[in-house]
Every structure is written in structure tokens, then in C-alpha cells.
Design a protein around this nucleic acid. Structure first.
Lengths: 139, 139
DNA sequence: CTGTATCCGCCAAGATACTG
DNA sequence: CAGTATCTTGGCGGATACAG
């Protein structure tokens, strides 16, 4: 038999699910993306990642550091300087993320179109339901 | 200049972030994965996807249908039969998901190891903090 | 500058009950 | 069989205050 699609068993706890649990949150891929363009310090990341709060940036970086994907280097100057960079493992993650990005760029337009069409159908259906509710029986 | 890493601008709302907003939830990739192995009806998906509730399966399928990635076919028999299948666009999503799965399989072990090491360091640090709090000053 | 520590609102997701 | 309709809740993420 040929190896099929995505995993076997394809269940909660499978590899794909596990990695998505890690990168699926709002900020992780953004941080990895920025660090993929070069090392950066905390305030720089904060500036370059639109809308991230101090707390969430710290939390995201701690998670990535814990996973061994990001390295944190403290320079005990005054004031303290902290540099973040991708580890070797972290850099390997860029590849699959780029694959996902490529898919997005190629298909997100179609997805939006499909959504619009779907929503219009739903709206029509909803209208029809209202109408029939307003005139319960023909007279 | 060379095209760099992940997106440009790499911000909230970028393509990668948008697709992760769609597939980052708990069930979407599992549904796509199972459907990648062949068409299936509702109860079959429910059985094959460990732990999914009726509500979440319906919600996930509706989202994928709205995005044009899954097709829903109703056979008006008694009792009604509903078949779900990936659309052409839906099948193209399998590729980047497999890339992610590949990364996971190759690196998730290292990630777990890194996490353990990190947690042990944290635990030690925490122990040391407790100790110094218990003996505020040497005597 | 680079973080911790708290408090809080919101919403995704689960549990449960009901329906065509 | 394949859903819809509510109710509830855990936890993510934002805001704010404070600290090394």
C-alpha cells in the first residue's frame, strides 16, 4: 500500500497537530519570520511586529527559546541589551513556513472569493427564511 | 537585494498569518488530513478524528466549505447521507501541510529535549530563589 | 531597556438538549 | 444520520503597574 496523505494515525497528538499547537498562535510565526531576516533585540522586534504587546512578545520568545528554536543572548551593559536569533533548528522551520506562505499567496484570493460567494448564498437563504416566517401560510 | 525570509511586510495580516488563522485551530488540519485519504461522510469523520465534538466538526467543515477547500454533497436518501471531499484547491493544501509534518517528525524530538532541559534549568533557578528567600542574609 | 506581576474581558470550544 | 440551538467555561491575550 502506498503511504497516504497526512499522517497515520491522523489524530490529535500527531506531529502536524503538535507543531501547529506551537506555531498556530498569533505571534510565533511573525517572530520567527522577523528573526529569519536577521538577529534582533527585544525593542526592535516590538517595533517590527505590528500590534504585539510586551507581554505577548516576551511569552512568545520564551516559548521559542524553550523549544530550542530561538537563542537569547544577554549583554550585561547599562542599560541591558538582549539579542534574539534563530538557532539552526529555528532556521529549518523557515522552509515549511515559506511553503505555507507560498500556498497562501497563491490561493488566498480564491479563498476570499469563495467566502464571498458562500456568504451571499447564506444571506439569500436567511432572507428567504424570514420571508416565509412573515407569511406563515398563503392566503 | 535578495528576497528575504518570510513575507514582506511580515506583519499581522500577512499571507502566512492569514492562512494560520484558518488552519491553526484544533481541528481543521485533522479534517483536511483525513479527507486527503479519501472522501468521507460526517459520522465517518467523527469516528476517525479522535475527540472532535459534533459541534466542532460541523463548524470546521462549514469553514472549509466556505473557503472552497471542501465540497459537501447531500444525498437525499432516508436517512440522509452527506459526503465530504476535498476540492482541487483543498488538495493543494496537502502539500504545505506535509512539509510541516515532515519538519515536525524530524524536529519534534529535539524540541522535546530542549523543553526538558529548559524546564530543568527553570526549576533549579526557582529552587535557588526559594533558598535565598528563606535565608535573607548570611549569618 | 527588558522584562515580571496582576487583573480582566472576550470568545473559542465543550457539554447538553433538541430536530428534520 | 446529520445536524442546530443554548449555556457555560477555560484560557488567551490586552492593559496596566511595577522592577532589575
Amino acid at each position: 500500500m502506498e503511504t497516504n496523505a497526512l499522517g497515520n494515525p491522523y489524530q490529535a497528538g500527531c506531529a502536524t497537530r503538535r507543531i501547529l499547537d506551537r506555531i498556530g498562535d498569533r505571534w510565533t510565526v511573525l517572530v520567527v519570520g522577523v528573526l529569519g531576516e536577521g538577529d534582533a533585540r527585544f525593542s526592535e522586534l516590538r517595533r517590527r511586529i505590528d500590534g504585539v504587546s510586551q507581554k505577548m512578545l516576551t511569552q512568545t520568545l520564551r516559548g521559542l527559546e524553550r523549544d530550542g528554536l530561538v537563542r537569547r543572548t544577554v549583554y550585561p551593559e547599562v542599560p541591558v541589551r538582549v539579542e534574539y536569533s534563530l538557532t539552526v533548528a529555528g532556521r529549518t522551520l523557515l522552509e515549511p513556513l515559506r511553503a505555507l506562505q507560498k500556498w497562501s499567496i497563491e490561493h488566498l484570493g480564491d479563498v476570499a472569493t469563495s467566502q464571498d460567494a458562500y456568504d451571499r448564498r447564506e444571506q439569500d437563504a436567511s432572507d428567504r427564511r424570514e420571508l416565509s416566517a412573515a407569511t406563515p401560510r398563503a392566503r
